[in-house]
Design a protein around this nucleic acid. Sequence first.
DNA 1: CGATATAGACAGATAATCTGTCTATCTGTC
DNA 2: GACAGATAGACAGATTATCTGTCTATATCG
Lengths: 145, 145
Amino acid sequence: MSERNITADRRTLGFLLRQPYERLQREVYGGLAARGFPDIRPAHSAVFRHIAARGSRLTALAEQAGMTKQSMAYLVEGLAEGGYVATAPDPQDGRARLVKLTARGRRVWDALIALSAEAEARIAARVGPARLAELRAILEELAEG
Amino acid sequence: MSERNITADRRTLGFLLRQPYERLQREVYGGLAARGFPDIRPAHSAVFRHIAARGSRLTALAEQAGMTKQSMAYLVEGLAEGGYVATAPDPQDGRARLVKLTARGRRVWDALIALSAEAEARIAARVGPARLAELRAILEELAEG
DNA sequence: CGATATAGACAGATAATCTGTCTATCTGTC
DNA sequence: GACAGATAGACAGATTATCTGTCTATATCG
C-alpha cells in the first residue's frame, strides 16, 4: 500500500454517495427537531415512507422497508409512545393491527416532505438545477437495473 | 396526505442516494466475506480508509472518521482480535499507541480496493462509463461545496 | 515544578438491527 | 366442523455501532 490510503488517489463511489446522503439526513432530521419533533430519527423514515393513509399492517411495513417484523415493531412502538401513530385492530383480520398516522404524525409527514424539498433546493442552488436533475436521472436509472 | 405516500410522486434524493450506497456495501462486504474476511463489517471502513502505512494514532483515526475515540477504539479492538491490525507504543509519545495494519490487514485493504473497483465496473457496464463518470463528477462537486 | 492539555482506557447508555420462539387467528381441505 | 398449516405480531435476548462521562498516564509550556 506504500504511502497511500484508499481515498488518496480516487474516492470510492460508496464514499461519494455516503457524504451527501448523510448531509441530507442531518439537514432533514435537524430541521424536524427544530420544528418540534426531536424524537423522530432517521430510522423512522422506514415507517413514514410507506405507511398508508388508511393504516398499514406491521408486516406490510416491515416488508416494504426490507426489515424484520421485530425491527419494525420497535420503530412503531417508539412512534406510538410519541403520539405519532396509533394502532387499532384490523376489522378484516383478527390477527392483525393497523398502524395509522395521528394528526401529529401527519404533521411530521408534511414536514419531512417540505424539509426534503428544501434540502434539495439548496443543492440545486449550489450546483445548478440542471446538474441536480442529471444526478436524479442517473440515480433513478441505477435504481431500476 | 390523501392516498399518496412520500415516494409516490417523486422519490426523495436521500432515498435515491441510499439505494446504490447500500447495494455497493452489500457487494463489497459480501465479496470480502467470500474472500475469507467475514468479520470485516462496513463500520470497519472507517479504519481502513484512513490508516497510515506507518501506523496511526487512535485519536487521529477517530478524528478523520468523524467519530469519538471510544467508538474508534471499539472498531480497532475488533480488528485487533481478528489479527487485522496490531498496536504498538508510539516511540515519539509515551501516551500514544500506533495502530498498524498486519499482513492480513493489508490483504483486506487490497481486497477492499479491488471489490470497490469491481462494483463500480458493474455499474459502468449497466449505465455506461460516461454516465458513471458524470455521476462521480456531480458527487465530487457536491462533496466540495 | 506545577498547571493544563492530550492519549486513550474503562464503565455504562442508547439506537437499530437481528434470530428464535411463542400465541392467536385465519384459511383451505377432508 | 375439525384439523393442518400459514400468517400476524408479541416477547426474550443478542449484536453492532454509536454516544457521554470519568479516570490515569504522559507530555508540554510557562
